[in-house]
Design a protein around this nucleic acid. Sequence first.
DNA 1: GAGCACTGC
Length: 699
Amino acid sequence: MEIEKSQSPNKSTVQQQILVEKNKNGNLGLFNKLQKERKNLPIFKHRQGLLDKIKSNQISVIAGETGCGKTTQIPQYLIEEGLNKNRMIAVTQPRRVAAITIAQRVAQEMNTTVGNKVGYSVRFEEAVDKNNTKLLYMTDGMLLRETIVDPNLSRFSIIVIDEAHERTINSDLLISLLKQLSERRKDLKIIIMSATIETEKFANFFETENIIYLEGRCHPIEVFYSKKPHADYLDAALNTILQIHFEEQDGDILCFLVGQEDIEDMQQMLEEKIELFPKEAKKLNICTLYAALPSHLQLLAFEKSQEGERKVVLSTNIAETSVTIDGIKYVVDPGLVKTRKYNPNKLIEMLLVVPVSKSSAMQRAGRAGRQSAGKCFRLYTKYTHDTLAEFMLPEILRSNLSTVILQMKAIGIKDVKGFQFIDRPHEDQFIESIENLQQMNALDANENITLHGKEMAELPLEPIYAHFMLVAFATNPNSISVVLSAISLMQVENLFFIPKGAKISLLDVLLRFQLGNSDQLTKVNMLHQYYLAKNKKSFCKENFINQKNIKKALEVRQQLENYFLDILKKRSKKNQKQNQANIQQQSEEQQIQEELAKGNTLKKLQEEHKTAIQQEINTEEFISCIAKGLSVKAAKLNNDGTYTIIRSNIQAYIHPESLLFYSKPKPDYIIFNEVVSTIKTYLRDITEISFSDFKEISK
DNA sequence: GAGCACTGC
């Protein structure tokens, strides 16, 4: 798999060299200062001990809280000692932003620029120099994809899995694969880094006793519990915020709430209270923070408080790990979180509000002590705290396994059920997903991966969408442009943002772009109009579009298009090879000619296969493709206006955000994109299909 | 006439 560089300005090496030199001279002061800082980190005292242990063991588990410097320092120590032995060190992170910013920081400390000795590799973006990069920070997903192409991960001599305690599917899988790989590659060193409380688990998994504990450097945090449980957690949070504001010293407040709705309610309640503040009272500014909020509004939460004013940030879980707000001194933690859970028997995802784990509670409290001593107010009793689970349920135990299994099969793991997971998913999860992959013909009756399955695995999509894309192309090659757009849009949430109190509804906006009886086509129409719009910013503003997310949809589309054309190239190469089996090998000159032509092939392929965004959208072609490609997501209207999902026989409602929520009469047959259970079971993103299409797929 | 947390390829 060759990853396209999406934004390499392709500077000549000379230019790069000049840049480095400039950086060196200009920042010598900075460099010296950073070197001093590095030596003052608590981890520096342990440098030699750490290195000795890592040298004498193939596998090391390192325990240390955030802020002890393990992520930035240990990789540098390894390089200073030459332990990388002329190959690269990979350090994985669960999040893109972390991989990029840490790489930048470490590059500074090593007196170089990112993309030279230190690089990063994340989706859509990489800064790596094949000949120079020694230390590569990457998302765990990127390293996982690399294992499909090179199961031995041969360009690395040391692999560091950071934040392993977060137990993402990707890091869990990587750790299992690394255990297998450690048998084949005795020269590979593996380092697992995790928060303190989870280290035993990893050490047991690797059957090692080589655990290294590092002390953190966090300011003290005083934790308070409620005396008795609260009936209404929003009310309790409101009172606590006001109490802090009037009784505690300067410092901003961070309050964790479960979702957008609660955040908006709380905002309103607080505003009403602030109205009643006495004139001489200190000013309290309210900021909100959640993923669906457009970035320019998110940024307000990060602005520094004015002297004599206080800020309260009402945030979802996004502030627990994904972002850090400076200046927080007080944390209000109701102890709840909204999580997604997959039910393999019902084949639906559910959103549940559940109590946090002890480790989450600790992480939240830690948000109060980043700059100085802080306080955390837990809105539950000490007794309740003691009954909390130690950790959140690992992601792999609450997810659909289709992606995981297809990936494992593509890597070459035949016996997925016998695979050694850190925590083994439930049998039902395996059965359901394997069946699902077989229905898509990604696996054959013997559970072996098919050619179709291999092509699906190359696409960075859930198997169902990869299947849809390939089936759509096989059914009607002309539809591929629209299908690419539709799939890309289905990968992105929160395309629209309609501020509270706006005089327009989401339906009004959707109607501006309506195409057929289809949310997907309506959004495709919107995407294509955005693509053609001269002033994209005002286009978004006029149509309440979240520009960050529509940009992402276009990025995804570009990447999918590239991968798709790669698949077509591979197919034609295969055909050629078969045809040429008896003909003598190509001459060297021919090969050179081909290489030269490669630059043009992509464009030619693009034109040939009509993958580029087109102005004309053929509604009928798309509908028959979606009916075929997403046939597992078909549903039929009942007399009472509800729908029955064909595959699972579950009853569901059309989601109120759908264009078809209001349509009368309701369509008899539909394809939906997603089913989610909140108060009711809802179908989201819906396309009406015809009876004949429906009959075709329910055969 | 209801309302989805977060992340990744």
